[in-house]
Design a protein around this nucleic acid. Sequence first.
DNA 1: GTCTATACAAGGATAGAC
DNA 2: GTCTATCCTTGTATAGAC
Lengths: 222, 222
Amino acid sequence: MSLKTGKIREKNSHVILSAAEIEFVKHGFKGASMQAIADRAGLPKANVLYYFNTKQALYQQVLSTISARWDSLLDDISDQDEPAQVLTRYICNKVDLAISYPNASKIYAAEIIQGAPNLQDQLRSNVRVWFKEKTKIIESWIEKGKIDPVDPQHLIFMIWSTTQHYADFETQVLIVSNKREYEADDVDVIKQFLCQIILKGIGLDIGSIEPLHMENQFACSL
Amino acid sequence: MSLKTGKIREKNSHVILSAAEIEFVKHGFKGASMQAIADRAGLPKANVLYYFNTKQALYQQVLSTISARWDSLLDDISDQDEPAQVLTRYICNKVDLAISYPNASKIYAAEIIQGAPNLQDQLRSNVRVWFKEKTKIIESWIEKGKIDPVDPQHLIFMIWSTTQHYADFETQVLIVSNKREYEADDVDVIKQFLCQIILKGIGLDIGSIEPLHMENQFACSL
DNA sequence: GTCTATACAAGGATAGAC
DNA sequence: GTCTATCCTTGTATAGAC
């Protein structure tokens, strides 16, 4: 029975976290109510508070789940490979993540917009260190003459903003381009567009990426 | 006395709107409280409700103030001039707006993230029409061979996302780049970076912009 | 482990004195 | 036009039955 109980706990936790994600996206941290989260999860309100003691704790849990996904999938800018290959992979992964988990990106964005009250520490430690590392790699590319002398920091900001835009501003993108939802084709077009403009923009020819490393990540229509 | 009253009304309205902007940024629509807005404005809560009958009305007022600023300053993509010049001007104006009114951009972004419950109509009418017009202009540039054959829609998304990033993600940008606030120099660097990458990315040489049209908009350090 | 009932605070909005 | 006092709803959280 304790095994079964554990399963129930795991399942309920997951249902609650999913419901919470949606409510936090739609109304923000303060605006989301435990009642609405419970309703969406199909559980009594007290049950939600049984699993996560406070609303704050539930929110923190949602945030750290998001951060974990970020960290695990996006840490692949290294100086082992050629710039074109590294940047292509990074951009494509970020686009995939944005399209696959739009709510995660939206909650993260809302947190930053509101001044990152729950993410300050992580930004000041982890993210800042990651950022410094990656700018140094980009600087080394510039020193070796592999890319144009562009500001490494702003290059990273450009990749972050352009990729996450398709998650955070999903509503606007879909409305103005008159679509109901993203399709597989759209994702390929996005990847191809971003890689083309950014690589060319910093002085790399998109043709310099060996097809091997593009894999199925995007259809090269040029 | 009615004149004086009108002045008081105008002044108080303005104070309330400014306070509301800040509270809406920090806590979202639902999360912001009339009490907190009133406190920030230095007025009793009932006073705020006297000027704006409901919280919803106050929020709508904030939103339409923002939209008005958007519309008036950013409608300058025309097919009269050369692409390089038009895009440079558009990018620089958007950066200026993002840096000058970060809260406006943040509230707009939060609205879109939450599914644009109060902006759907405007997006479906005004913004969509604007978007269609501008993509056609870009298409005409492509047909005339003035720029590379890139997707016009995604080019606009790229400009929107990269420029507004500096407002919406201000907190993150400042923390990871270890600054307290944006300085005049930063703004120039941002404009110059974005123009360089995007113009070059779509096959335009940044040198093709006549200095005349760059004015003081950014220092051309190349 | 699960759920009903409830305590207690905060929020939006209004009535009415000044 | 301005502000105090108050109504009523909603929200978080807990107590305690099952």
